[in-house]
Design a protein around this nucleic acid. Structure first.
Lengths: 246, 246
DNA sequence: CTCTCTGGTTGATCGAGATCAAGGCTGGTC
DNA sequence: GACCAGCCTTGATCTCGATCAACCAGAGAG
């Protein structure tokens, strides 16, 4: 989060990222962005687009959470990305969606028609630079995720996911310490299973096990708090610094 | 592979990617690149760098294959990337390696000192644009890989890996058809296991099984040929278009 | 209030792949 | 030649997580 293009920044009644472009944009670029933007909203659970769909816009997430998933012929699915506020959706230069995109919570997108956006990008280098930064962060996250998928046990996977969510949540709420910190899991058990390459039964069992062992505390099904963050990180199998969600 | 920055292009005695920058660079940028470049070579099996190492250069692979791997405390490892000729190593703006990098075959790198390279990038937008393209391709490959790691059976994983290698090899050799096409596996059984999140025993068994079932043919331990590419793709569980290795 | 639907939990069983273990093949060195 | 070290294969057994199945809890809707 800084003052470069495509970051969210509160700006009057329009709390969307492209406003932040203003800081470095020439006035006429700002006008272009204003002219080409439009909003779309999706309810929780709604599909946003399917893999292979024509995509005439790129977008930035204003509020809510969306997931990218891949599906095999026989229905097996794997989540391959999570879009949080300020994340970018769509690949400049590609007109087809590569993944299924689904709104997990209510989602608002700030959309830009693709062609004009690409044109603007071509002569506004800092937009591309910012996009490169974001993409490199996503790549790092994907690689952390690959270690989780390929080599961790079910218990370690759950611990890793909760750690990632806790870190993110704590950062968003500017919590001082994570110990004792409470938050809601944004994902259903099934979505967690899709994230981790498990079944929802195994997810449920491992969450119960972590609760029984005192590593996490549960209020209801979704609300989690972490009595001792260090103990949770230990369960991930990582060495102290652990997984990120860049 | 096109004429943009950072692609390999044969250019006299210097077959390295940055030569291709010339096509779009101003002469003085070319001079800068020439001045800051140097080469390094690594023997097969040699470590190129360890996660956390200080990295004072970025580099482009000239020849050979290198892998990026992550290692857990207890020694479990997961391959998270493969670098082929023309691929880029290092993240502009970061001075620490994020992964263990290992030469799988003999590797030659064309290196640029990081600081001057970053400076050059800042006022040569098409280098950043090209880097963005390459990073997006890597991200797509990583996501394909996540589906393999999370949801595929051992047999499907092996079939997917062989498919990826066959496609790449066929493209490099400009083969007309992949049916009947022969090539060498560049990886040991252990490296394949690290790639796929399996053990080397399982890799060996599944390769034997695919051979017994006539999906692949083996001459020796490394040389593979594919009698019917369609049959192999069927084994991957993908729908026809399948995995890529961008 | 009950009915029903969605999301979650828990139990019993099964099987794919890990683990442990014993060779085999090939290329190098003395 | 004999020896050795890497890399690979194959077998026996075990275990973790998938699968199949039953049940539970809360939130609407009627």
């Amino acid at each position: 989060m800084n003052d470069l293009a495509l970051d969210i920044k509160e700006c009057g009644s329009c709390p969307i990222r492209h406003r932040a472009v203003c800081a470095k944009c020439e006035p006429d670029e700002l006008v272009l962005l204003e002219e080409m933007k439009f909003y779309r909203t999706y309810d929780a659970g709604q599909p946003i687009m399917w893999s292979g769909d024509q995509m005439d816009f790129v977008a930035s997430v204003v509020t809510g959470i969306a997931t990218l998933t891949q599906t095999m012929e026989d229905g097996r699915t794997q989540m391959v990305g999570m879009l949080l506020p300020s994340d970018f959706l769509g690949r400049p230069g590609r007109d087809r969606a590569a993944y299924d995109v689904t709104a997990v919570s209510n989602v608002q997108l700030c959309c830009f028609r693709r062609k004009p956006f690409e044109a603007l990008m071509a002569n506004t280098p800092h937009i591309g630079q910012r996009l490169l930064e974001m993409t490199l962060d996503e790549l790092d996250a994907a690689r952390e995720w690959m270690l989780i998928l390929g080599r961790k046990t079910a218990r370690e996977k759950i611990a890793s996911l909760i750690t990632i969510i806790a870190r993110r949540e704590a950062a968003m709420q500017q919590a001082r310490a994570i110990d004792g910190f409470g938050f809601d899991l944004p994902l259903t058990r099934e979505a967690m299973a899709d994230y981790l390459g498990l079944t929802l039964e195994t997810v449920s069992r491992q969450i119960s096990a972590l609760k029984k062992d005192g590593v996490i505390e549960l209020q209801g099904k979704r609300r989690v708090s972490i009595p001792d963050f260090e103990a949770l990180v230990l369960e991930t199998g990582d060495d102290a610094d652990g997984g990120m969600f860049a």
